[in-house]
């Protein structure tokens, strides 16, 4: 464990807590893409298949349970909670996320470290996480105005993977033979996808005005 990875995990934890807080307290999911939340639930379900077989540490197991629990409960809230579901804008949240799942699965079957069931699904979860934010970013551009909590959620979600990139650089230089191109490239692409959001988020924060992405 290094400071970059710990900062990344805490930022990731903060992002899901901000979203859960928003949905649970104001009982609204306005501006939040259910498709992105469903993709994240799939990401965690396929990445943490080893949760009961490989014990790494209490921290590792605890965080996996938190991420699994929060992502599935957010999906449940947005789909089934009688009040929250009314604020879900399904007419705007139309990104065909199945067009993301299939290519990621095919790619994971071609590019992986070992062609086994768990390894292919683990690789699939990395590719899927890299593009999971797309429905949310498309929804933002459609709905134009977004509330602060949703903006903070996306910012934290992007920042966590940026911290992980520093973690991978650190581990590359401190641990011999620590080379994993697949998460590195997927993580880099994921962070780049947030590029323009970060740009507009920073400018809205600097000029202290409402965050608006260009149409």
């Amino acid at each position: 464990m290094n400071i970059f990875r710990f900062a990344g995990d805490m930022t990731h934890l903060a992002s899901v807590l901000v979203l859960l807080l928003k949905i649970h307290t104001i009982k609204s999911c306005a501006g939040v893409s259910l498709k992105t939340q469903e993709l994240y639930a799939i990401v965690f379900a396929t990445r943490y298949l080893d949760i009961f077989t490989d014990f790494i540490s209490l921290y590792n197991t605890f965080m996996k349970l938190v991420f699994l629990g929060s992502s599935f409960s957010i999906v449940w809230y947005m789909r089934s909670h009688k009040i929250v579901r009314r604020s879900y804008d399904k007419d705007q949240d139309t990104f065909r996320h199945y067009f993301l799942i299939v290519p990621c699965l095919l790619l994971a079957m071609i590019i992986n470290e070992k062609f086994t069931f768990r390894e292919v699904l683990w690789t699939f979860s990395l590719f899927l996480e890299a593009v999971a934010i797309l429905p949310q970013l498309v929804l933002l551009q459609r709905t134009r105005n977004i509330d602060n909590l949703t903006g903070q959620y996306i910012f934290l979600l992007g920042a966590y993977r940026a911290f992980y990139i520093f973690n991978w650089i650190y581990r590359y230089f401190t641990e011999p033979h620590y080379v994993h191109w697949i998460p590195w490239i997927a993580g880099l692409l994921q962070t780049l996808l947030y590029g323009d959001f970060f740009y507009y988020y920073f400018h809205s924060w600097k000029n202290n005005k409402k965050l608006q992405l260009p149409a």
């Binding site: 990875r5 080893d50 790494i56 590792n60 965080m63 996996k64 991420f67 683990w122």
Partner: peptide, 10 residues
Amino acid sequence: FQSPPQKDEL
């Protein structure tokens, strides 16, 4: 026998 490097990251 080197055990496979575990996936210790989240």
